[in-house]
Design a protein around this nucleic acid. Sequence first.
DNA 1: TCCGGTATCGATACCGGTATCGGTAACGTA
DNA 2: TACGTTACCGATACCGGTATCGATACCGGA
Lengths: 332, 332
Amino acid sequence: MRQPTLEEVAAAAGVSKMTASRALRGAADVSAESVAKVRAAAERLGYVGNRLALSLSARRTNLVSVVVPSMSNIVFPEVVSGITLGLEGSGLQAVFGISDYDPDKEREVIRNMLSWRPAALIITGLDQPEETLALLRHIDIPVIQLMDLDGEPLDFNIGLSHHAAGAAMGRALIAAGRRRFGYIGSMLGRDLRAAKRREGFAEALRDKGLEWITSSIAPDASSALLGKQLTGALLAGGRDIDCLYYSNDDMAAGGLFACMELGISVPSDILIAGFNGLDLADALPVQIATSRSPRRQMGEAAAHLVRRVLKDGREGVERVIAFTPDIVLGNG
Amino acid sequence: MRQPTLEEVAAAAGVSKMTASRALRGAADVSAESVAKVRAAAERLGYVGNRLALSLSARRTNLVSVVVPSMSNIVFPEVVSGITLGLEGSGLQAVFGISDYDPDKEREVIRNMLSWRPAALIITGLDQPEETLALLRHIDIPVIQLMDLDGEPLDFNIGLSHHAAGAAMGRALIAAGRRRFGYIGSMLGRDLRAAKRREGFAEALRDKGLEWITSSIAPDASSALLGKQLTGALLAGGRDIDCLYYSNDDMAAGGLFACMELGISVPSDILIAGFNGLDLADALPVQIATSRSPRRQMGEAAAHLVRRVLKDGREGVERVIAFTPDIVLGNG
DNA sequence: TCCGGTATCGATACCGGTATCGGTAACGTA
DNA sequence: TACGTTACCGATACCGGTATCGATACCGGA
């Protein structure tokens, strides 16, 4: 019970392969009678076209390959949703790969993707090692580096400056009267965008003659629980701080929960600031400060860019699309 | 600057296509000299094998197609991570599609997937309409229905009984002394597994002569914010309840936040119960009751089943793998 | 010198579609 | 009757790999 081929459908309908092909694609130059026979045969046999043969023959696929670092952090699935949504109705199909924040694995995933001859490639960030870039310079499809702007793009670039986002948050919190800053983060060696935010924030502090009073960075993946634990440990140290900046909202939410358990008033005693503007942040009993990153929009923008370039070529298409996250300080 | 073909690599290396093919695949019957020449040429030209041609020729792909309802709810990305992880090192590659909880869209996504001739198919739940099942009965690859057990499986089935999970939670909460139950959920017409949990829970109530005192169901997608809003509205109604069962942990977390803002003591005044056992639930300042669904494990189990069946055939492989969620009542 | 075995390589067919082009039947028109 | 036009259809080639089988060169041994 193999999948039937077009040849078999054609035989069942009593016509040639070509006529069957034309009939199923709704081409002209086929009699209504033939169309009916072929349709019926295809239905009866459960025929499903073979995209391998189609794509090989046409020398192009309808695939848009997307490589993200993780699926465990909700922000990437959201970007992925945006891409899928933005591709809807275009006939293009998104395919996803996970790099686990590992540059070597990312290169292998990309190589794997390229072996399917996608029509376009969307990858995360701008910090691919030279070896990966070399791989990408050999191909002639549009390549979009997504979510980050701090660096030299290879082809197209859509995202936001995490360095600037960190700096803007730092300035906003200083303007709000905070002076004694602590940092809590995770996995900065691999999550380079979080590291850029931290560095931008630190620069904003230096501009005002300030610096981190304390800093706690774990090697694990970010999570609310980790944020809670690190915050609990840090506060137990008795440092005198009035603001904690977290690598993201998950961590910050955990920090908030730690404060609530410890009876520390947020934001009057300590202001909690994260990054992303997760849906969760809007529901928290105490609002935390955050930068709303336009995750779905970035995904959709990437999808629309792909559609445009594949349809009309690269001419006149902006190489860089910059987003700016809104800062929300909350009800503090 | 098209992607080079094996033919071009072979020409650059001064050998035939076949020799180049053999050299790159590390086959015997090729001289060390030829291997070196071909490798060098491939490297120089940036050759990446064409999986379309390979798969068409071999009449099989290394693809495992996965269809999930959504990527916005963290549970599905987690399942997806589990599948990807479980496939690691097998040479198999997972490909994902999103159905948006829409049966028609699901059928189209599946049809699209099948056109790539995957080696296996993993879909969510057991409630596909007959039209979709008809599509699946025509194919001879392993099909796994994942995450649910309540129904008649088509081929393989891995998951948990949501009806039983709801009933177990209901019994546990009754045993914990609760009597006046309210329900808060979302999108039950589409999230059939949540509907099954609600029904199972209601049955447990009926067994003890109880029933829902109040129920609030929104058509929107679940989120903490929605849970918070519905809870706020429901509590403003002044119903006398001592326990709220939610469609999932996101909603329940929102419910907890609503209670905290309203000064309602959890769990002494109202016990909050959700479903999933999200990481977030462990970090909340007040623990909520939940059923821990083994999301990564189900994904990994599906991946291992696929590997086994593709390697050794279906003989002797269990058709159904049942998981049971642990109930956590929390620190109430 | 001839033969058999081994190492290495290439020509060909095929996977399942579609593009292309040429063929045939039916019909109208000069 | 001869010819052109139109509608419909099918044979063939090709996409880029690999399986298969046969060819060739070279070696050692009889």
